[in-house]
């Protein structure tokens, strides 16, 4: 969501920047044509340029995507103990699950037959 806002903002800002570039060019060629000395740009062009810079910078910052938390403890909070501390040699198979599985299969066979 904020990336699309960022793209829109930076596009708008760059458009206005290009527009101010073109109007500067026009203004300077007008001054050259009438042989006046260059006396600084009109305030509208300067204002348009600076505002478009600020707008497009905000757009670029929004466009850049999120930063990720680098602290390891944040990452560790998402992990379960099974991912971190597996010791396959300690896994036993001689537990109550054996009885649970056989009871389950018995029930299934009975429900299929009836």
């Amino acid at each position: 969501m904020s990336i699309t806002i960022g793209r829109l903002l930076s596009l708008v800002g760059i458009t206005f920047l290009i527009h101010s570039a073109y109007s500067t060019y026009q203004h300077l060629s007008y001054l050259n044509a009438v042989d006046k000395a260059e006396s600084g740009l009109p305030i509208e062009i300067i204002a348009e340029c600076l505002i478009s810079v600020v707008v497009s910078l905000v757009g670029v910052v929004l466009c850049a995507g999120d930063l990720k938390n680098i602290l390891m403890e944040n990452e560790m909070r998402k992990q379960t103990i099974d991912k971190l501390d597996t010791a396959p040699s300690f896994i036993t198979f001689n537990h109550r699950g054996r009885r649970a599985v056989s009871a389950h299969s018995l029930l299934q066979r009975r429900s299929h037959m009836s």
């Binding site: 930076s10 800002g13 760059i14 920047l17 101010s20 570039a21 500067t24 740009l41 300067i46 340029c49 600076l50 478009s52 810079v53 497009s56 910078l57 670029v60 910052v61 466009c63 850049a64 995507g65 999120d66 930063l67 990720k68 680098i70």
Partner: peptide, 25 residues
């Protein structure tokens, strides 16, 4: 990842502020 994100933002900064500085003369 964060360093890459920052670099993207700074590349945009260089382009936009450089262009503005050139326009303003």
């Amino acid at each position: 990842h964060n360093a890459k994100t920052m670099q993207f933002a700074r590349a945009g900064l260089a382009a936009i502020s450089g262009s503005a500085a050139g326009i303003l003369g």
